[in-house]
Design a protein around this nucleic acid. Sequence first.
RNA 1: GGACCUGUGGUGCAGCCUGGAGUGCACGCUGGCCUGUCAAGCCGGAGGUCGCGGGUUCAAAUCCCGUCAGGUCCGCCA
Length: 601
Amino acid sequence: MDHVTGVDGASGESGMRTHYCGVLRAADAGSRVSVCGWVARRREHGEHLAFLDVRDHTGIVQCVVERAHEIRPEYVVRVTGTVRIRPDGTANQQLATGEIEIGDCDVETLATCEPVPFSLDERAETEEPLRLRYRYVDMRTERMQANLRLRAVVNSAIRRSMERQGFVEIETPLLWTPTPEGAREFVVPSRLQHGRFYALPQSPQIAKQLTMIGGFDRYYQIARCLRDEDLRADRQFEFTQLDVEASFVGQDEILGFVTEAMVDAADAATGVRPGGFARMTWAEALDSYGTDKPDLRFGMELADLTAVLAGTGFNALHAPTVKAIVLAGGASLPRARLDGLVERAKALGAKGLVWMRAAGDPVTLDSPVTKFLSEAELTGIVRAARVAAGDLVLIVADEHRRACEVLGQLRLDLGRPPSVGGALRFCWLVDFPLFDGTDEEGNPQAAHHPFTMPYPEDLERLDTDPFSVRAQSYDLVLNGWELGSGSIRIHRPELQRRIFAALGISEADAESRFGFLLDAYRYGGPPHGGFAVGLDRFVAILAGEENIREVIAFPKTQSGSDPMTGGPLPLDPKRLAELGVRVVETAPAVPPPPPRSTGAG
RNA sequence: GGACCUGUGGUGCAGCCUGGAGUGCACGCUGGCCUGUCAAGCCGGAGGUCGCGGGUUCAAAUCCCGUCAGGUCCGCCA
């Protein structure tokens, strides 16, 4: 990583420091320098010698002083002294600055610090709520510094990439109009119009489509989105996405734009341009990986045994689809573990799970159920699933989707590599179904969103077999995480009306919900499509983190609280009255605000 | 809305199953010693509502019920 070798006026420091701590080297020996930072550690050796390790975001430098008893860890100091080579035998190889130290020091305390509530040592684990409550302290750790700076690098690279590709950044409103579709929205009461509400955008979806009609044929935005849905390791109320929309282009061009941005960003983050964006249809992903977000970092693909077992007399394996995965070397798993896998499969919705241990040459299968299968069926399984001696075969027979999905999950349980430090395996998924499931009234539901363009050749089945209609929509998957999704949009009002009808949205409904959008398409809407990439997830993967909170400066807990500020908080009646809002049911117990003192010994 | 896991000096843990004095480990904090350390070392000290409430029991950190907080997941996330 490049380091600034000095600090000039551009830093706005007015000469408080000449260098960052982590950049000093043997070549600087003899220089008179000033560094500013936090005391990472203090080592006292009696009355006449002490060491202060001073830290800033670039690293640590050792300062040698006569006495430092009054200077405690995490004090903010400015040290002015002379860089010198350390005495023979005292260099520290672990430290980038380990060949030198700052001697002849004048130490100025800029701020004191109470004992911090948890260790900043990288080796110490601290419970997350405590880190979040004192996030400003937590941020000083190497981990948080690296993660948030990585995020800035990614944002910056994405902006450059999109601009180079001719995209224009346009800001869209945070105060938008409520739309009763999709994710639950955060709502903002209008002070000037009591009883009316804005909604915070779950995404700038409609706004960006309007910019297409407005003639900005390549729009992008690094946009905050807000969804009032339950939180997860990969979901916060607020998140950031790279939002893209372009006119007069097809699916391949849009995938190309996004691929370019991802490659540029990954390059900036890691120094390597990732290649090999896999591409498969939604149906292929389900068939081979049992999921619509396949993790391509490892094999263990699903084998299809349906044909092999088509005529089986063994009822447990008689089903529309029979699928298997093979765990290499898994034949040695203890029986208790196998029983656990069966339970897991049942918990995932399968009727059962058949396991078989493979041994010998030629390979034979051993299992409590082999006696119900013919020789031909057993050799068929070995051949179809490419079973080798020592392997464990796991078989699920069920409806197609369930069989695939259960084994897809078991594949992850048994084979998924750790998130840290591995390869980046991107994968485009295309040809999603237009509809997925039905609502309470039995109407098909849009798999992506109601403005998604179907394949023209599938349209004839819209009324007769809607679930077979494919959409021109696509997902980007990275290492098994859904990074984003997009589609070609419907730009012709008459087709949009047909889709609304198929979704069970009446003309009057469509008018009241999306009237302004339908109006807009009467005034020259070009063919267009777009995409959105979840940047919190992308940065988390690049950082080797399992949780997006680690790449967010001030995240919320799973219950939507902020341990630092205590929010959300009740509003006093005066402000509620001003907004024309009455609280009908107060929360049962508002916890008291966190105590002010650290209570540290 | 639901399932599971966690909650013990400032921090991270052990103790809980099988009830018997707040018992232990490491770090931190604090006082002292120490002139080349670097997670410094050595000696001493302080620091506890065992998340909270109730129950069982002669006796509860430990068993039971409830509750709160945090986490992981299901539902939810067009």
